[in-house]
Amino acid sequence: MAILCDKNTKLLVQGVGRMGQFHANLSREYGTQVVGGVAPGKGGSTIGDMPIYNTVADAVKDTGATASVIFVPPPGAADAMLEAADAGIELAICVTEGIPVIDMARAKRALAGSPMRLVGPNCPGVVTPEQCRIGIMPAQITRPGPVGVVSRSGTLTYEAVDQLSRLGIGQSTCLGIGGDPIIGTNFIDALTLFQADDETKAVVMIGEIGGSAEEEAAEFIQSEMTKPVAAFIAGQRAPKGKRMGHAGAIIAGGKGAASDKMAALERCGVAVSASPAEIGETLAKHAPGISG
């Protein structure tokens, strides 16, 4: 089961520059079916043994690709998302960091009503352990198991996954949703998928300062979820009005502080770890019987 991707996923790579090629290879080594790349003007050529197409539509027609990972640089990334949707791709994961927020607001609006699910941008991607890797995560730290992981961060996701794996707790799917102000898949979307997934028995959610996505997720967890959720919010020590690396990580107008998010989650029955070193333990305590 798992969510979003598994061994049947057929993956395209949009943007086959140095980073796109490097991670396409790692995904393939992990066992992911990487079926082709898209580079306008280079259709008909190959990179390694990966066939290259001019358009996503050509690639889908020829390969039956169901998913796409986008490494296209910021000026063209929003367009790449729309192209993937137009070609009938089911899942697009955008790794690109630095897309102007107005481009993203317009693309997200244009995708409303499209059956394609977008994850990201500015995200590390998704790994279903021992089945499929899309994006840039170090899949070797994951292990199969019952815990869904969803996070706005990259390396902090790895930290949390590593803490779980060291406690003998495996993951159903690990998902980074991205650190930008506007993203395709938000916490509630991911939690909805984990709640519906039979293999997922509990969820770890990693939020950070900025916006109100964690507060909205807290309400959702209380009203819609039966599975236990543990959480950590990064940025408890962040000053107001400063962007902390991610474009979306900023306490603006007195809103988006970690303490508010932690309180909202606790009120809704989520086990919140105050320390980033105890994310795994917090889940293990909150969901007894989960450790493997």
Binding site: A234, G235, Q236
Partner: peptide, 17 residues
């Protein structure tokens, strides 16, 4: 000095903790 924004924020939190 940390790699990644989320982990960098969490590192500040760890120090405070």
């Amino acid at each position: 000095m940390v790699n990644g924004a989320g982990l960098a924020m969490a590192t500040l939190d760890m120090i405070s903790h």
